[in-house]
Simulated assay, not measured.
Amino acid sequence: MQVWTDVSQVPTAWGPSVVTLGNFDGVHRGHVAVLTRMVADARAVGAHAVAVTFTPHPAQVHRPLEAPPLLLGDADRLELLAGTGLDAALLVTYTLDFARQSPEEFVRRYLVDALHARTVVVGRDVRFGWQNAGDLTTMRRLGERHGFTVEVIEDVRPDDADEPGGYRRWSSTWVRELLAAGDVRAAADVLGRTHHVRGVVVHGDARGRELGYPTANLGHVAGMVPADGVYAGWLRRERRADGTPVPAAERVLPAAVSIGTNPTFDGHDRRVEAYVLDRTDLDLYDDEVALELVERLRPTLRFDSVEALLERMARDVEDVRAVLGLPRA
């Protein structure tokens, strides 16, 4: 998939295109269903399939104090979009100047002049242009003026109405609610994959190592961090600090992941850290890793003694083995 970060990067001869617009936060099952169908439709008419998306999320520009946490960082979002078969993605930097364009200006510059849209795929609630003045009726009118058709996509819902929440459409909002409750297993059902967060391993206070459970502490975390607690998951090594490849056997490792402030030691900073099961020899400092969160085992607890904490940590490790289908130690 080609990725352009400015409309000027789109090749002059690009097109014709089937284009869709959206934030695609999470690239959940609803997004994937729509995009894969769009790709198939584009192939059938000999057109390119293109997604126009934005960074940062428009809400972070217009309502920064109210903006929802993003489920994915840009790199992960683009990787997942590529997995749907798209030919290209135009990642537009969203600013107040960009937002001041009229609906006509946006459509003409991005969809018509740059991407040579033959079809534009939108939801019924599409809004675009200054103060969200453009809607579905506007898009259809502009399509008639500039020579493209408009295809309306309906909400995509789970096939099985008996599933928990089966009445509800797949959405980023639904995933955020589940993650905020710590229900990463249900979130995976909506996403179509295990939710993960990503970051570079930084030095912590080494308390885990002192207790016999050395942890990889993530610095700045990309992706929505779910509710505090202990999780069973996998640590996926993405990139070594020195650029050398990670051996295949060391790339995906079982882990107990702790999210919270470490109340037993009167901690105040919220941390995301992972203990790789049965490994005290790993040097992950400055490596980029992703933590795939499979199931929440328990909430964060305050223990009366280090001994009580160690006892529970040993139980947590065995619970991780059970969740991940690993043999007991």
Rank of each mutant, 00 (worst) to 15 (best):
M1G: 08
V3R: 12
W4I: 05
W4T: 04
P11T: 11
W14H: 13
G15Y: 02
L21K: 01
G22H: 12
G22L: 13
F24N: 12
V27E: 12
G30N: 08
V34Q: 10
L35G: 09
V39G: 11
V45Y: 07
H48D: 04
V50P: 06
F54P: 07
H57D: 15
Q60V: 08
V61A: 08
H62F: 15
E66V: 00
A67E: 00
A67D: 08
L70H: 04
R77C: 04
L81N: 10
L81G: 11
A82Q: 04
L86E: 12
D87Y: 03
A89S: 15
L91S: 01
T95P: 14
D97L: 08
F98R: 07
Q101T: 12
P103R: 02
V107K: 04
V107G: 03
V107T: 09
R108T: 07
L111K: 05
V112L: 01
T119S: 10
T119D: 12
V121D: 07
G129W: 01
A133Y: 02
D135W: 01
M139V: 11
R141G: 14
L142R: 03
G147W: 05
V150C: 05
V150M: 01
V152Y: 13
I153Y: 13
D155H: 11
V156K: 05
D159S: 12
D160E: 10
D160T: 06
A161G: 11
A161C: 00
A161S: 13
E163A: 14
G165K: 07
R169W: 05
S172C: 03
V175P: 12
R176T: 02
A181K: 08
A181W: 01
V184T: 11
V184F: 01
A187E: 08
V190N: 02
L191A: 01
R193Q: 09
H196P: 05
V197R: 03
D205L: 06
R209K: 14
E210H: 08
Y213H: 15
P214A: 05
G219N: 04
A222S: 15
A222F: 12
G223M: 00
G223V: 00
A227D: 11
D228M: 04
G229D: 01
Y231G: 11
R239C: 07
R240H: 11
D242I: 10
G243C: 07
P245I: 05
P245N: 06
V246Q: 06
L253T: 10
P254M: 03
S258H: 10
G260H: 04
P263S: 13
R270Y: 09
R271V: 15
V272F: 02
V272E: 03
A274R: 06
R279Q: 10
T280S: 15
D283Y: 03
Y285L: 14
D287K: 09
E288G: 09
E288V: 15
A290R: 13
A290Y: 03
A290H: 02
L291E: 07
L291P: 06
V294G: 06
L297Q: 10
F303T: 14
D304L: 00
D304K: 02
E307M: 08
E307T: 14
D316A: 10
E318D: 14
E318R: 12
R328T: 11
A329W: 09
A329L: 11
